[in-house]
C-alpha cells in the first residue's frame, strides 16, 4: 500500500548558497549565471551553465550541490544523486548535502541508500521531524520494518494525532504482517483525521485482508463519500460485498470503476463472477477475458473462465483455460541467489 507522494518540499530546501572561490573567472561567471537562472526556476538552462562551469573548473566548490539541486528540481533524481554524492564526499559534514543525497536516492527509489544518507543527516539534527518522517518512509520502502517502526513511533510521541504517521506506521505493521496492530494504527488515523484522503480506504483494505468484509465495506463507503471517483475504493467495496454474500451494489460499483479505469483487473474479475452467477455467461466471459488481458500470469481468471466454459458444456475451451492454469504452476528457473518470496497470499497486486 503506497498512497503518499514524495514530499520533498516538506524539508523546505532552498538553493545552496554560492561559495565560489574559483581561480578561473569564467567558471565562476558561468556558475553565477546558472544560479541566477535556477532562482528564476529555469533549471534546464541553469544546468547547461553549471555544466559549462564544470568543464572549465571541475573542482569548483559548491558547484555539485547547485547542479544536483537543479537536477533534483527537474525530478532527475539519479543525476542529482551523482552530484550530491560528490558534494557529500567533498564536505562530509554537510547536512544539506546528506539530506539532498538522501532525497535524491529516495526519488530514484533507492530506498536503502536513502535511509543510510538520511539517517546520517538525522543524527546531525535529531529534532528535525520532517527529516525523520522521510527517513522512516525510506526504512519502510526498503523493508527495514523494525527501523521504520521505531522512527514512526518516535514521531508519534512528538505528535500523537498525526494521521499520516499513524497511516505509515500502519503500513509498516501491515508489511510486517502484524495486521491487528496495523489496523489499530489506521483506526487511530481515521479517528484523528476522518477526512484524510485514503485513510478509510487503507483501513478498509486492512479489514478486507482480514476477511472482515462488513467493516471493510463500511470504510470503503466512507472513502467514497469523500472521493466518489476513487476507483480502487469502488472496486474493493464491490469485492467486499461479493465476499460477504451481499451483492446489492456491487455490479453498479464495478461498472462505475471500469468506466473510469478499464484496466482494473479485480473489477473485471468480480464483474465476471457476478455475471456468471446471474447466468449472463457471455458477458461474464468478456470480463474474465479482460482480466486475463490485463494480467495473463494470474491463474484466477483462467480458472474462472474455465469453470464458466465447463458449466456451459464447452469442454474444449474449459480444458484450454485449465491447461493455462497448469502452465502457470510450472516451476521457475532457480537463480543462484533469490530473495525469499513471501509464502502466503500477501496483498493483492
Amino acid at each position: 500500500m503506497r498512497w503518499f507522494g514524495d514530499k520533498a518540499a516538506l524539508l523546505g530546501l532552498g538553493l545552496a548558497a554560492a561559495l565560489w572561490a574559483a581561480p578561473d573567472p569564467r567558471a565562476a561567471a558561468e556558475a553565477d549565471a546558472g544560479l541566477a537562472l535556477a532562482r528564476e526556476g529555469k533549471y534546464q538552462q541553469a544546468i547547461s551553465r553549471y555544466r559549462t562551469a564544470l568543464e572549465l573548473n571541475p573542482t569548483l566548490p559548491g558547484l555539485p550541490l547547485n547542479l544536483g539541486l537543479a537536477y533534483f528540481k527537474l525530478n532527475r533524481f539519479a543525476d542529482a544523486a551523482a552530484q550530491f554524492e560528490k558534494a557529500a564526499k567533498a564536505d562530509p559534514a554537510s547536512f544539506q548535502a546528506r539530506v539532498l543525497l538522501g532525497m535524491s536516492y529516495y526519488g530514484s527509489r533507492r530506498f536503502a541508500d536513502a535511509a543510510l544518507a538520511l539517517q546520517r543527516a538525522s543524527e546531525q539534527q535529531p529534532g528535525n521531524t520532517e527529516l525523520r518522517f522521510k527517513l522512516a518512509q525510506s526504512y519502510l520502502w526498503s523493508k527495514q520494518y523494525e527501523a521504520a517502526k521505531r522512527e514512526f513511533q518516535v514521531l508519534l510521541t512528538q505528535n500523537p494525532d498525526s494521521a499520516p504517521v499513524h497511516m505509515l506506521l500502519g503500513e509498516v505493521l501491515d508489511a510486517a504482517n502484524q495486521q491487528e496492530q496495523a489496523t489499530a494504527e489506521f483506526e487511530a488515523a481515521a479517528k484523528a483525521a476522518p477526512g484524510e484522503p485514503e485513510v478509510h480506504f487503507g483501513l478498509g483494505y486492512l479489514y478486507w485482508k482480514q476477511k472482515r468484509y462488513d467493516e471493510a465495506l463500511r470504510e470503503f463507503e466512507a472513502e467514497l463519500a469523500g472521493q466518489p471517483q476513487h476507483t480502487q475504493a469502488l472496486t474493493y467495496a464491490a469485492d467486499a460485498e461479493i465476499q460477504a454474500g451481499s451483492e446489492k451494489g456491487a455490479e453498479d460499483r464495478l461498472r462505475r470503476a471500469l468506466q473510469m479505469d478499464p484496466n482494473i483487473r479485480l473489477a473485471h474479475l468480480d464483474l465476471g463472477i457476478l455475471l456468471a452467477a446471474k447466468s449472463r455467461s457471455t458477458e461474464a466471459a468478456v470480463h474474465f477475458r479482460e482480466a486475463i488481458r490485463i494480467d495473463p500470469s494470474k491463474p484466477d481468471a483462467h480458472y474462472r473462465l474455465g469453470r464458466l466454459w465447463h458449466s456451459m458444456g464447452r469442454e474444449a475451451e474449459a480444458n484450454a483455460e485449465f491447461a493455462k492454469v497448469k502452465t502457470l504452476a510450472q516451476p521457475e528457473r532457480p537463480d543462484p541467489l533469490i530473495n525469499v518470496p513471501g509464502r502466503g497470499a500477501g496483498p493483492p497486486q
Binding site: 494470474k298 491463474p299 484466477d300 481468471a301 480458472y303 474462472r304 492454469v325 502457470l328 502466503g344 497470499a345
Partner: peptide, 11 residues
C-alpha cells in the same frame, strides 16, 4: 477442487 474459489495457488 483444483483451486480455491478465488483461483489462487495456495500452499
Amino acid at each position: 477442487v483444483a483451486l480455491t474459489e478465488n483461483g489462487q495457488f495456495i500452499s
